[in-house]
């Protein structure tokens, strides 16, 4: 096992006592996050629960008021190359003057370091990643001409190019069509089969059980976390969403929650 050898079996992500505040208001309060290697984990919680903040804290983009984050037992700065990030699609300006292939090539920048420019091998890797997400025909397309689902796939391809061990994704399924959603799920499973770890902020409670192995229920504090079958219970969800959950399973609960939160 490649990963086992490199890491001595440490957790992919271990955050302890993570506390983060914006202007003295806690956004994350004493949160522990333990992600074993090779799992697909969903982070679930109402709006304003701190899901994106948690991802950004793990990535070192935000400075926690307390607590620490370890990636494979090491601080993030030394593990940068092993972590890939897929931000929310809406976080960037899609009118930026460039092509789909160029955006995917950005995933290779971390390996290049400052000043060195991407060459033909970087572009070839980017093209291969585009093929992996079924977007090879759109390589030269201006990014504003792509649909929402296609833009999301571009972002995923960019993360694939990073060839990381841990993938942090902020709502990868948001606003994508059914085809793209299936393609993304297959991609996540392929990553897991390669021993990669994926942590995704997820909004659709109905698909948590189907898509993910583990789940962290978050609402400023961590309500519960662990294997889906053990943790994803009606009671835990009620704690997370404040008692407005009708039930889980086949019922249309995800939508109720969306409107409730």
């Amino acid at each position: 096992m490649r990963i086992g050898l490199r890491t001595g079996g440490a957790l992919a992500i271990q955050a302890t006592d993570l506390t983060l505040a914006y202007q003295q208001r806690p956004v994350l309060w004493d949160v522990d996050l333990e992600v074993p290697q090779g799992v697909l984990m969903a982070i679930v919680g109402p709006n304003g629960a701190g899901k994106t903040t948690l991802l950004r804290a793990v990535l070192g983009l935000l400075q926690p008021a307390a607590g620490e984050v370890l990636i494979f037992g090491q601080p993030y700065a030394s593990q940068r190359r092993r972590v890939a990030y897929v931000p929310q699609r809406g976080s960037v300006d899609w009118d930026f003057p460039t092509t789909a292939l160029d955006i995917v090539t950005m995933g290779t920048y971390g390996g290049l370091g400052w000043v060195r420019r991407p060459g033909s091998s970087e572009r070839a890797r980017a093209a291969a990643a585009l093929t992996e997400v079924g977007m090879e025909c759109y390589a030269d397309r201006q990014i504003s001409q792509l649909s929402g689902g296609q833009q999301q796939r571009i972002f995923l391809a960019r993360a694939l190019v990073q060839d990381a061990d841990v993938y942090l994704m902020d709502e990868p399924f948001q606003g994508v069509d059914a085809t793209t959603e299936r393609a993304i799920v297959e991609l996540l499973r392929a990553l897991r089969a390669d021993g990669k770890t994926v942590v995704a902020v997820h909004h659709d409670l109905q698909t948590v059980t189907e898509y993910f192995d583990e789940v962290t229920l978050l609402n400023v504090r961590r309500i519960a976390g662990g294997p889906v079958e053990r943790v994803f219970t009606e009671e835990n969800l009620r704690h997370t969403y404040g008692g407005r959950v009708a039930g889980i399973g086949g019922r249309a609960m995800g939508n109720d929650l969306e409107s409730a939160s």
């Binding site: 950004r56 971390g110 960019r158």
Partner: peptide
């Protein structure tokens, strides 16, 4: 610094995550 300017302009969060 063309690549750095481009990346930090398009997606500052990824730029930060990549170092």
């Amino acid at each position: 610094f063309f690549k750095e300017l481009k990346l930090a302009t398009f997606d500052p969060a990824l730029a930060a995550a990549l170092g």
